[in-house]
């Protein structure tokens, strides 16, 4: 009898301990997950070339920094001491721009993940893309920055889509009529990603506007234009593509592009609702007595 009671007490103790553990785990878990859910998200962070979409990137990046090391130690690093480079690994509390309020700076880059700030150091678009192949997890995917050449897959930095440059027409001095083509000349894909558009300047009546226009389908988001911009806070700057670009929806099809038109193939067409009235033609309906009387 006494033995039974002892066992019971042991059982009870175990039971209570487990429940205590569960309670603590629930409390700690909610705080912990709340923090991580908040900390894994930065709206304006720019990732290295070949990065998979941000949601997936946070899942895949193991925070080893090998891309950062490759960027820093590449041969053509303009900083010959190799102490700074485009890519950096986010440290906790790493949200201090060199000049406050002078350019877009990410607030809370998920700790330990690579990013860059174009106004400080842009991506120089190395042709051999040293930062992508070292990635062990596929967070930087070589396939996203490769193209097929002579049946062979080769790295192609022009396919990178780190972000997209956006022009603020109000503060771009070229739109005022002043002569400035700093961004246009800085662009590694000059006349493809940024083109100059000529327009008459009605204010003077005798001069031309030379307006920089970004072509988002070509722009890699390297940020050389943002660095080159002469205004105090850059009037051309790189934003993550998901922030800067819209989306038309699948039902728009470019009838003038063969590839896009392929998408209609196999489509059932629009499903019509058939009612007794559908048998009559629309004209009949419009000419009914009821409508004429009104």
């Amino acid at each position: 009898m006494a033995e039974d009671k002892k066992v019971d007490r042991e059982k009870r103790k175990f039971f209570i301990r487990t429940l205590q553990g569960l309670g603590l785990a629930a409390l700690g878990g909610s705080i912990w997950s709340g923090y991580v859910a908040e900390a894994k998200h930065d709206e304006v962070v720019l990732r290295p070339p070949g990065a998979v979409p941000e949601e997936e990137f946070v899942k895949k990046c193991i925070k080893c920094g090998m891309c950062v090391e490759a960027c820093k130690n590449r041969e053509n690093n303009p900083d010959e001491t190799k102490q700074t480079a485009t890519l950096r690994l986010a440290a906790p509390g790493d949200h201090r721009p060199r000049e406050k309020g002078k350019y877009i700076y990410p607030k809370e880059v998920p700790v330990g993940t690579p990013y860059f700030v174009p106004r400080e150091i842009p991506c120089y678009m190395c042709e051999d893309i040293p930062c992508v192949p070292p990635c062990p997890t596929g967070a930087l995917d070589p396939d996203l920055v490769s193209s097929v050449k002579d049946g062979k897959k080769v790295l192609d930095i022009n396919k990178a889509r780190m972000g997209v440059a956006v022009v603020d027409m109000e503060h771009c001095i070229a739109y005022w009529g002043l002569q400035c083509d700093a961004c246009y000349r800085a662009c590694p894909l000059i006349d493809e990603a940024i083109k100059l558009e000529l327009r008459r300047n009605p204010r003077t009546g005798r001069h031309a506007f030379l307006l920089p226009v970004v072509y988002p389908d070509v722009c890699t988001g390297c940020g050389l234009c943002e660095l080159a911009c002469v205004t105090e806070k850059p009037a051309i700057f790189v934003l993550p593509r998901h922030l800067a670009l819209g989306r038309v929806g699948k039902h728009y099809i470019k009838g003038w592009e063969k590839q896009d038109e392929e998408r209609i193939k196999g489509s059932q067409g629009i499903q019509k609702t058939i009612t007794p009235r559908s048998e009559e033609s629309p004209e009949d309906y419009l000419n009914t007595e009821d409508l004429l009387d009104e």
């Binding site: 925070k63 080893c64 090998m66 090391e69 130690n73 190799k82 330990g112």
Partner: peptide, 16 residues
């Protein structure tokens, strides 16, 4: 990281 030595690259999370 600092000198680009290729003995151990990365960090304890993942390295080569």
């Amino acid at each position: 990281n600092a000198y680009g030595w290729k003995i151990l690259q990365g960090n304890l999370s993942s390295s080569r």
